[in-house]
Computed example of a mutant assay.
Amino acid sequence: MLSFRYAGLLTAASIAALTLFVLTAGCTGTDTGSALVQSGTGQTAAVTDGFGRTVTVPSPPESVVCSGSGCLRYLVYLQAQDLAVGVDDQEKKDQPMEGRPYALAYGSQFKNRPLIGELRGKDDPEKILGIGPAVVFKTGSTGTSYSTSAVDADKLQGRTGIPVVAFAYGSLRNDAEKAEMYAGLRVMGEVLGREDRAEEVIAYIEATIADLENRTGDIPEAEQKTVYIGGVSSAGAHGIISTEPAYPPFAWVHAKNVAAGLGTAHADVAKEALVDWDPEYIFIDLGTTQIDGGGAIGELKNDRALQGLSAAKEGRVYGVLPYNFYNVNYETILADAYFIGKTLYPDRFADVDPEKKADEIYTFFVGKPVFADHNSEYRNLGFAEIPL
């Protein structure tokens, strides 16, 4: 079903063993578990969510709502988008630039759903109660102003009387945040009865990262390219100084991120530092183009100091599709990594067409090949050299 090296990394025997383990042991990886019982209205399950709360949910639920940045994305990954009976106001906006592949695939469907509250988990309990979902999923990114917690989940559950299953959103920036992401997928899959799909998504991510690392892992350190990612969104669009010191694609393809060492979270760097670093390649997160004047691209064109960067002068500035847009677009990170890898080390990715690879990845995660539609919103600057 999956191309490139996925089939080689996951043999038929290992897939069968994985499936058997999931079915017999739950395979949540985070001590979550469910105990089925009979109630007057049907079967229910006691589930341990991402914050250690035990929540009794209908099993499986016939309807759900998703609260918080990125929560609905996970529902799409698990191929359960038809269960969503309400959405927050982020899903109802008409935006000239839609940075979320799942919304490109199912936006018209979601726009027609009733409103549950505002974006970033600002729920309206009365609206949720009026819709009456069987379960509420709630998530947010740890350490941000829009994170969620056991207290938030208990409060919403207490005000609605509806089971609330909460978890941290996670990321792929480090092992701890990756574990959060996988735990969130697993607990949502457990509630929905889609454990197999959750494990399939996790296995796909692991196999994709392994493929990227295997292609480039033997490049000597002295031959690894120096790189920078600018214009990274974080609760909105930002300019050239906005970066990710632990930008996952750079790590996966063994490129030297000049901003490494500034932590793992989003960071703003001084322009003087960027000029001093003078990376060989600059990648621009096209979420920046939402800013008047073109954001990071406009800065590279018009700022004299930045015009002196080697990458700007020598035509090594490239566009990648948005990393963060209402939380992390995991499918886009993986797709971007193949383009970055081929740009830096073309001989290691000679068999890869980045656009076709992106559509393969998008189809796996969101069910539709949305690369062309996604890229057209950003003037087709994705996976291309940006003319300055």
Results as ranks from 00 to 15, higher is better:
Thr289Ser: 14
Ser63Asp: 03
Ala12Asp: 02
Thr144Phe: 03
Gln38Ala: 10
Gln307Arg: 15
Val366Asp: 03
Arg173Leu: 07
Glu331Thr: 10
Gln79Ala: 11
Thr332Tyr: 12
Tyr74Cys: 01
Ala372Arg: 09
Pro125Ile: 12
Ile15Gly: 03
Val151Arg: 15
Tyr338Ile: 04
Leu381Ser: 11
Asp94Thr: 15
Ile162Asn: 05
Ala255Leu: 02
Val275Glu: 08
Val135Asp: 02
Ala273Glu: 12
Trp252Asp: 02
Gln109Gly: 06
Val258Pro: 00
Leu306Asn: 06
Tyr74Val: 10
Val258Thr: 03
Gln43Cys: 09
Ser39Gly: 15
Gly86Met: 05
Phe365Thr: 04
Ile297Pro: 05
Leu286Asn: 09
Pro96Trp: 09
Val64Asp: 02
Ala210His: 13
His266Phe: 11
Ala183Phe: 00
Ala255Val: 03
Ser147Asp: 15
Glu223Trp: 02
Phe364Ala: 01
Ile241Gln: 03
Leu18Gly: 02
Ala105Trp: 03
Gly40Leu: 14
Ile240Asp: 06
Val258Phe: 00
Ile128Phe: 11
Gly341Glu: 09
Val57Ile: 13
Ser108Thr: 15
Gly231Ile: 10
Thr32Val: 04
Asn327Cys: 08
Gly143Leu: 07
Gly294Leu: 10
Ile229Phe: 00
Cys27Gly: 11
His266Val: 01
Leu321Tyr: 15
Thr148Trp: 07
Gln81Leu: 04
Glu331Tyr: 07
Arg5Ile: 10
Ala273Asn: 13
Val317Asp: 05
Ala251Ser: 13
Asp373Ala: 15
Thr332Val: 15
Ala296Ile: 08
Ser149Arg: 14
Gln95Ala: 13
Tyr378His: 14
Gly217Phe: 14
Leu75Phe: 00
Ser63Val: 02
Ala251Trp: 05
Glu272Cys: 03
Asp89Ala: 09
Asn329Gly: 07
Asn380Pro: 14
Leu18Pro: 01
His266Gln: 01
Pro61Met: 12
Ser149Gln: 14
Asn214Cys: 11
Glu377His: 15
Ala179Val: 04
Ala17Met: 03
Asp276Thr: 08
Ala372Cys: 08
Ala176Glu: 12
Pro163Lys: 02
Val269Cys: 01
Ile361Leu: 09
Ser310Ile: 00
Pro96Ile: 10
Gly261Asn: 04
His374Lys: 14
Thr343Met: 03
Leu300Gly: 11
